[in-house]
Design a binder for these strands. Structure first.
Lengths: 149, 149
DNA sequence: ATAAAAATGAGAAATATCAACATATATCAT
DNA sequence: ATGATATATGTTGATATTTCTCATTTTTAT
């Protein structure tokens, strides 16, 4: 999936505004790294982003890609998929429960909610595979991180 | 959060049944590793599980912990939180969309679904932090992995 | 244009995860 | 219970991923 040119421009404009507000400097590297993520419909990992940016900016370093991606995550311009800044974690509780995840520190809190337990899954998902479980992930910033601003 | 003794026993019984069905051998190590995950309400990583099991079984190896956790995941006794068997991935699409994730290969498919876009979030979650987004993660086994049985 | 603050690149280091193989153990048929 | 067989374990080493340090460069505000 590729994102339309118009939409990419819109995202980049937004990116520039947010950088200014957050007081982070607008460098070539950051712009190109953000562009790379913004124009992809996929969910690239750092290495993939690095490869893409490198074509247009051969001197960029992998470390800058990492730093920039986490910075973009911190200011809320992109988000991570899955465990944030942590290693793989395991859970033996297979019954219905849901998660609140802090975007800053990765802290995860379980909660139960009957209203979220029996969601209607769209038919199209059945064409992807056999469904085993459904759960809701709520993302945001935990109080501790919010107050440490 | 600690899990009740009764519930842990129930999970272990289930573990033994599933191992038998799946034709995997029931070893001390596996039992202790499963017990460790089953009695924790947290979402431990492999290292954490290793530390816990080690207290009761000092000779266990970290690698066995890894192998066992993935085995337990493969037979569906536990699940991973977040990206399965992959590196951190990033997404610039902050608008509403949801994910189907294959438990075996980690493949992730985006889908849109109006019916899932405006879920009612329980009040308790507001006490955890500031909510920014909500999305649904549907887990299962993709067709490719299912047919490769 | 200049100074101050922040970002970058390069390479090294730390961390996490996985693989190979020789040895040990569980399971199953007897 | 016993022994054969397939599978699991521990050890060690390799690989992959992510972060750190610091000298240099770039951006931003003046």
């Amino acid at each position: 999936m590729k994102i339309g040119k118009r939409e990419v421009e819109r995202r980049i404009q937004h990116f520039q505004d947010v950088c200014k507000d957050a007081g982070v400097k607008l460098t070539h590297q950051r712009l190109e790294i953000f562009r790379e993520v913004a124009q992809t419909g996929d969910h690239p990992d750092a290495e993939k982003v690095f490869q893409g940016v490198r074509k247009r900016m051969p001197t960029v370093s992998l470390d800058t890609v990492y730093r920039t991606l986490w910075m973009l995550n911190d200011v809320g311009l992109i988000r991570t998929i899955g465990a944030s800044r942590e290693r793989t974690r395991f859970d033996a509780n297979l019954s219905d429960h849901h998660h609140f995840v802090c975007r800053k520190c990765g802290k995860m809190i379980d909660f139960a909610a009957d209203s979220l337990d029996d969601l209607h899954t769209p038919d199209v998902v059945n064409t992807y595979g056999l469904i085993e479980s459904t759960h809701v992930e709520i993302r945001g910033v935990c109080h501790k991180c919010a107050s440490r601003q």
